[in-house]
Design a protein around this nucleic acid. Structure first.
Lengths: 237, 237
DNA sequence: ACAAAAGTGTTGTTGCTACACCCATGC
DNA sequence: GCATGGGTGTAGCAACAACACTTTTGT
C-alpha cells in the first residue's frame, strides 16, 4: 500500500465520504421508498435519497444509523428497529459536481412505517411508491435500482423478508412481502408449506392470539426465527 | 445531504480512499490468495492484500483495475483478464493507525495464474494457499474472509465459477472450482448433468479438440456461456 | 493389467405445482 | 348468503442423490 507523501493529510486532494440510504418499506401492500426533497443546488427541488457525511470518528455503518434517525423524520425507536445493510460504494468522479464525493450506500428495511415527521434537517421526507418517483438527484436512481435488485435476490435465499414485518406477523403478511418486491403472485398453500418446512425461518407464537387483516379467517401469528439463510431457497417463479 | 461549510475542501478532516484486492485463483486444485509483504510500518514485514490509493480523477473500480496491474506483479494481459467485482467498503475509524482511511474492497478471480514477477512496487507479491497465511495487516483478515464467503455463495446461484477457468476448460476443471471453494466433493455425473442442463452456463466447443489432465479419458472442452445467473441454483450439499 | 478420469444409465426419493376443498370471519 | 382470506389435502411431475457401469487414456 503505497501512498502519497507519507500521509500528510493536506498533501493530496481530499475525498468527502458520505452515506446514502435506500429506505424501503411496505405500505398497503406496495413497496415504498423514503425520499427527501433537496433544498439546495445542485438538483435543488429534486427528490434524493436521504444521507449525509461520515464524521471523522465514526464508521460508515454508524453514520448510516445516525442519518437514519436525523434525516428521515422517523422516530428514534422506529429508526433503531430498521434492518440496515451495506449495499455498495459509488465513486465515479463527477457524481457530485461540487467536489469529489465517495458514497457508501446502505439499504434499510422496515415494517409498514409511519409518515415521517420533520424532526431533523429533512422535514420534507416522504414515502413514495417505488416506481412513481421521477429521476432522482446525483446517481441515486442507480443506487435505488441496485437496492431493489439486491433485496429481491436476497429474498430468495435468506430470511430477509421478515425485516419487512413487525415483530409479530401472519404468513399472509410475509407472503405480501415477496409479492410486493417480486411483483408476482404466489400460491398461498405452497408458500405456507415452504416457509413452515424451513427450520428457523419463522417461529409460531403459541399463545391463542390471532388477528385479522380486514375480513376472512383470523391468522396465526409468527415471529422471525433465528435462521438467516434459506436452505433450500425460495425461488422466484 | 447537509455538508460542512459549503464544501470547502480543507474545512473538514480529510478521508483517504483506498482499494484493497482479494485476488483469488486455483493452483493445483487449491484456492490461493495473492498477498504482498509490507515494506513499511505499520505492520512492516506482515502479509497484506495488494491495494493502493484512489486517485482524484478515477473511480474506485478504475483504481482497482490499475492496482491489479501495478501492485500484483502480474502481466498486463493477465491482470486485464481477471474478473473484478466490488465486495464491500471497510471504514472503521482506526483501521489504519496513521490516518482515516476508507477502503473499497474488490475481489478479483482468475484461472491458474503464474507466479508474480516484480514489475511494480511489490516485487514481494506471492501466491499463498488460502488458510495458510498468518494474520494479515490492518483488517485484511476480515476482508479476505468476506471475499471467500461471498464467492462461495455466488457459486451457488451465478455462473461465477467460469471466472476461475481459462477460456477453454473441461467440466472436471469447473467441478474443481466448486470443490476447492466449498471444500467438499461433488458427484461427477450429477454435476455434469446439472451444468449441461442449465442453458447458457457453458457452451460446448464443437471442434474435435480434447485434452488431458494427467491420465484418464480426454475430456471435451467448453467455454463460458452467456448466462450470468443460475436458475435453478447449484446448491451446496 | 491397473489406476484414473470422462461419460452414460437407472432408480428411489424429495420437492414443488396446481389444484380442490374446508374453516372462520365481515358485510 | 356471499366474499375474502386462512389452513389442509392430494395427485402428478421435475429435479436431484446415490450408485453401477462403460470408455479411454497413461504407466
Amino acid at each position: 500500500m503505497t501512498g502519497p507523501a507519507g500521509y500528510d493529510p493536506h498533501a493530496f486532494p481530499p475525498f468527502a465520504v458520505t452515506v446514502d440510504l435506500a429506505v424501503l418499506t411496505l405500505r398497503e401492500g406496495r413497496l415504498h421508498v423514503l425520499l427527501v426533497r433537496r433544498g439546495e443546488a445542485p438538483y435543488q427541488g429534486d427528490w434524493a435519497l436521504p444521507g449525509g457525511f461520515v464524521r471523522p470518528d465514526e464508521s460508515a455503518g454508524a453514520a448510516a444509523r445516525r442519518e437514519l434517525a436525523e434525516e428521515t423524520g422517523l422516530s428514534e425507536a422506529t429508526a433503531a428497529g430498521l434492518h440496515l445493510e451495506q449495499l455498495a460504494t459509488y465513486s465515479d468522479p463527477g457524481r457530485d459536481p461540487r467536489m469529489r464525493v465517495v458514497s457508501v450506500a446502505y439499504t434499510a428495511l422496515g415494517p409498514g412505517l409511519p409518515e415521517p415527521r420533520g424532526g431533523g434537517d429533512a422535514a420534507h421526507a416522504q414515502w413514495l411508491p417505488y416506481g412513481t418517483q421521477g429521476p432522482l438527484a446525483f446517481d441515486h436512481d442507480a443506487i435505488l435500482t441496485d437496492a431493489r435488485q439486491r433485496v429481491g435476490a436476497k429474498l430468495e435465499y435468506t430470511c430477509l423478508a421478515t425485516a419487512f414485518c413487525p415483530p409479530l406477523f401472519t404468513l399472509g403478511e410475509l407472503r405480501g412481502v415477496y409479492e410486493a418486491v417480486w411483483g408476482v403472485e404466489l400460491d398461498r398453500p405452497n408458500f405456507r408449506r415452504k416457509v413452515l418446512s424451513t427450520p428457523g425461518f419463522v417461529q409460531a407464537v403459541d399463545g391463542p392470539p390471532r388477528l385479522t387483516g380486514g375480513r376472512g379467517k383470523p391468522a396465526a401469528l409468527y415471529r422471525a426465527g433465528g435462521a438467516t439463510a434459506l436452505h433450500p431457497p425460495l425461488l422466484r417463479p
